[in-house]
Design a binder for these strands. Sequence first.
DNA 1: TCAAAAGTGTTCTCCCTACACCCATGG
DNA 2: CCATGGGTGTAGGGAGAACACTTTTGA
Lengths: 241, 241
Amino acid sequence: MATKGKYIYEYPHPAVTADCVVFGYDGKELKVLLIKRGKEPEASATAYVGEWALPGGFLEVEKDKTIAHTAARELKEETGLRLTVKDFKEVGTFSDIHRDPRERVITIAHYALVKLAQVEASTDADRADWFSWNDIPHLAFDHDKILRVAFSRLKRDIHFEPVGFDLLPEVFTLPQLQNLYESILEVKFDRRNFANKMKHYAILTEVESPTPRRGTRTPVLYRFYKENYDRLKGSGFQLEF
Amino acid sequence: MATKGKYIYEYPHPAVTADCVVFGYDGKELKVLLIKRGKEPEASATAYVGEWALPGGFLEVEKDKTIAHTAARELKEETGLRLTVKDFKEVGTFSDIHRDPRERVITIAHYALVKLAQVEASTDADRADWFSWNDIPHLAFDHDKILRVAFSRLKRDIHFEPVGFDLLPEVFTLPQLQNLYESILEVKFDRRNFANKMKHYAILTEVESPTPRRGTRTPVLYRFYKENYDRLKGSGFQLEF
DNA sequence: TCAAAAGTGTTCTCCCTACACCCATGG
DNA sequence: CCATGGGTGTAGGGAGAACACTTTTGA
């Protein structure tokens, strides 16, 4: 095992990984998908065994078309979740010289938004789990920092794009939508103003309520009206919160 | 020369570079600093010799504390310009599998803003030159794409931070400031509204005019009032354009 | 009938926009 | 005195913020 290396370079090269911050929303709280670190078949040594971490892994130099492909591939391998390259948004590069004890590793962090109800079942529960944003365990490497930056990035993006709808089920209530925005932006809105704004934007369509029940008045169900949103955006319009 | 490599890995590693988009402003137009590619002492092969490109170069795995340090170091080596790590903002990762014909190279693009008058003299004119934004030559690799993304990133950032002042000399006129914003945002503002807004923000202080002349009325000189800006920002305030 | 959550409309204020005339300087 | 570019104020409209009561439903 002393000289099992087969890849030779004239100058030192770093290892490159892609890490994924996958956000979900259960109607009440923002959640993040984490994995429990075990043995890594492809790394020469293993670090942080047994700790929680962001899903992610090494760029396959000869195979991954872009680093986003690495993110998608690794997420599927580690959690079972299948997302497309387009679902990932780049968060940034984390390149601190000692961020990995084994060798120089720089990572490109990405985030993705998923409809929790539709993917919870398809995640590999042996290795992966969803954690509430306010109850995140200690993470391996600098993944706490990555998580914070990813969240601030989401917070910024939601001002300009209707990314919130990627987190909600196809059909949702106004209070759910408002609560989601409040969770991400860490503010409180007035119900009436929020409803007025949404009505004014005209990017929601009412859905025939299949009379669901709870211990309270039945809320109206809506669907995101993407065609209208695209038209508005086309005519130089900006969603603001 | 067949087996001069000394760095051995069990799995293939990509090369990693940092590229720099350095913006300047001459009072009239936005400019970008480019270098003419020559022989590269550190690369096993050389590509795009003689073409213009963004300054940048390889991460030194054992030396560069972060990728931003690579950017700062390479910029100095290639253009003579000394900037600090804090002057660089990350633009994004460009990782297309064939973006470099020699080997797999992923690059982390950065941008920086400089006060042109103060740095023009200290740039190494043999290898580097400033180009107007509207007159950029064809660039090596995917540097055209990087340039476009960096610009759109600047355009976004200027909405939230007073980055414009990093491009202007310490003392400037209101029309200069307005023209800069117009160049970056690619819009036109009404002079009076622009002045009103600036007066309202109260982030400029008038400077005793040392009576400079041109073929016209002498404009009032201003200085960026950073203390006031920081106070405003502290109390949850946002610069808008 | 009570508690819990959802729906709804109006007023006020502030900021953004549109807009035109006079002033200083150099040639 | 003319051309060029710089400085200045106000009125109107639209969007965001503040604000309270009624409705539905299950317990």
